[in-house]
Amino acid sequence: MRVGCPKEIKNHEYRVGLTPESAGELVHQGHDVWIETGAGGGIGATDEEYRGAGARIVEGPDPIFAECEMVVKVKEPQAVERAKLRRGQVLYTYLHLAPDPEQTKELVESGVTAIAYETVTGPNGTLPLLKPMSQVAGRMSIQAGASALEKAHGGRGVLLGGVPGVLPGKVVVIGGGVVGFNAAQMAVGLGADVTILDRDPEVLERLGIHFESRAKTRFSNKAALEEEVCGADLIIGAVLIPGAAAPKLVSRQMLRCMKPGSVLVDVAIDQGGCFETSRATTHAEPTYVVDEVVHYCVANMPGAVARTSTYALNNVTLPHALKIAQLGWRGALAANPHLAEGLNVHEGRVTYRAVAEELGFDYTPTAELLHAA
């Protein structure tokens, strides 16, 4: 199969879909790999490294979109990229379609077969292709929040860890999954006063055992959430419903009880955000203020630590890319029901239930497509 990897064009996105090592693995398996010149620059990977791995370097993205059977990316295709996609082509990347009707409509119209990293499953309902970026984003959320709390950046002027004789900052993490766990780890490590909210008793028990007295856990209901929000210096939104839009758990009304200069970091912004006042921002302009509360809602947080993120991502995406290249998308999905969960759009049909229901498209089960074939 001819596999192409264009340079990412989203604002301040430095990751790349294939590392030189990943390109080399595909070449070793007999595939033809095309890399856009400069695609690896954000992680310090040169065109010569890709050539050394056996890949072909092409000028600009057009040859990749026009001639490659599979396009491997990191972030969702931007409008100019969506216009180049075509029927019979496989797009393998993060998509986050539920809060993005325009992207979904254009992918449907293109006829492309789109496989989303974020909905590929693993054993016990895990999301292995989302997990490494959730780990990165969870850890970065505390760094970003700590910086936004500084007075010069619009915050309250609170040091999360405090100092002897001064109380530490209060961090509230909404959601105890991968993002929330990693955020709590970082906040605890800094010496902050940390509370984690979740609705799953098993998750709360697991977090309680892990953190012991270093972090508090609390069952999440409306009263508990309002109380914790009002007292927080930093709130991390770490809620995920796989493939669906994130629920709006913190209303604008709740912001009015928060302290001026307190900070919200919405890690769920890729799925629309879990704060009513959230709107996507970029690394160029990461924050804005609503009702004296600083909002950090960067939709591609891991892009800021591109080298770490790219290698972590390739560790989990490459095995599936190899299978798709070897067997074709139908063969790979038929052989692996977990990968089949990643199919979101195929030849004008929406194949992921949560996306179809959220955006009003007819739903076509992936199994129906595979069975028909």
Score class of each variant (00 low, 15 high):
75 K>A: 09
199 R>I: 15
352 Y>S: 05
317 T>E: 14
180 G>I: 02
85 L>K: 03
88 G>D: 09
148 A>F: 08
121 T>L: 08
193 D>Q: 14
137 A>C: 11
352 Y>L: 14
72 V>C: 10
191 G>E: 08
92 Y>W: 03
172 V>S: 07
325 A>Y: 02
304 A>I: 06
216 K>Q: 15
251 S>K: 08
54 G>F: 10
272 G>W: 00
229 V>F: 05
271 Q>C: 07
311 Y>R: 13
242 P>H: 00
350 V>M: 06
192 A>L: 02
291 D>K: 07
327 L>W: 04
175 G>R: 00
54 G>V: 12
86 R>K: 15
324 I>G: 00
368 E>C: 06
49 E>F: 11
245 A>F: 07
75 K>Q: 14
167 L>I: 13
135 Q>F: 07
42 G>P: 05
223 A>R: 14
147 S>Q: 12
230 C>S: 15
137 A>N: 07
151 K>V: 15
226 E>P: 02
118 E>M: 07
321 A>V: 06
184 A>F: 06
322 L>K: 06
364 T>A: 13
183 A>P: 06
300 N>H: 09
19 T>W: 05
331 G>H: 10
156 R>K: 11
111 G>W: 00
129 L>P: 01
254 M>L: 14
290 V>R: 05
266 D>K: 01
7 K>E: 14
156 R>M: 12
197 L>C: 12
304 A>W: 02
271 Q>I: 09
285 E>N: 13
308 T>E: 06
177 G>F: 06
255 L>M: 08
95 L>M: 15
220 S>W: 01
27 V>A: 13
301 M>T: 04
210 H>K: 12
2 R>F: 09
229 V>L: 07
164 P>V: 13
119 T>C: 10
329 W>H: 05
106 E>C: 07
323 K>H: 09
162 G>L: 14
128 P>W: 00
282 T>A: 11
211 F>G: 09
212 E>R: 14
